[in-house]
Amino acid sequence: MVRRGAARRRRRCVAQVKPPLARCLLRLFTVQGSWNYERMLGIGFGVAEEPLLRGLEPQEKGPMYRAAVARGAHFFNAHPYLCGMAVGAAARAEHDGAPAEQIERLRTALSGPLGSLGDRLVWAGWLPLNSGLALAGIALGLGWSAIVGFLVLYNIGHLGLRWWALRAGWNYGLRVGEALRRPFLRRGAAVVAPAMAVAIGAALPLTTVYLGSPFPGWARLVLAGAALAGVLLLQWRRLGLTGLRLGLGFAGLGLVVAVVWR
């Protein structure tokens, strides 16, 4: 009864506290800076979470604060843009007096969903979509405007997602699963994937023509042949080729032909 009352009082106090989310957000830009094979994002997570843990107890840097800092630096991995959701949720759970095991379980439970959602929304969605638009823009003669447009548009989405994730994590705390079920996230993933496919599909032929335009006819045929051969080789999974190995191989072959054909 006393513990429940104390937890309720602490939640009311948390609701009145204005958390230093901006400072936390700035630190989140460095969250991958100490990525390692022991704790992955853990160290960066702990550093980013620390401002939100101040005021956890009246005594500055007391035992509760140190225990929370230690927990914050434990193993964690997720998409860097959505990492803030786990940071905010874990910090809020600390303030709400959740048991340590529950906070650890929360962090573990969030790793997978935040990683997969971020990969779908950003690495396989927002980034290639904007890259495709920029490439198409350059090929159509927009020049620097296409590049500036890419930087502006991409970062509006990127920064908006980081800020939303951190705030949602702090506001929802242990109920952060509700934030992940928000319709706009599902709709976003459903819209950004086909948009990315259209943008890259359009950019490929436009970029091919743009890059081939300075060369004479025979060189353009060689370019088209190399591109087609490259796609087929990369689709042949047994070869285990990556784009980098393909490029190095083709460069080597090109040098041999160039030396012989002098």
Binding site: G212, F215, A226, A227, V231, G247, F250, L253, V259, W261
Partner: peptide, 27 residues
């Protein structure tokens, strides 16, 4: 070390490889 046409061959095969990587990655 290279003639103009030789340099062109190197350039176009590398461009072709990069386009292939982009297309294959998207697929």
């Amino acid at each position: 070390g290279l003639a103009v046409r030789g340099a062109m061959v190197v350039a176009v095969v590398v461009i072709g490889a990069s386009l292939a990587a982009g297309a294959a990655g998207t697929l």
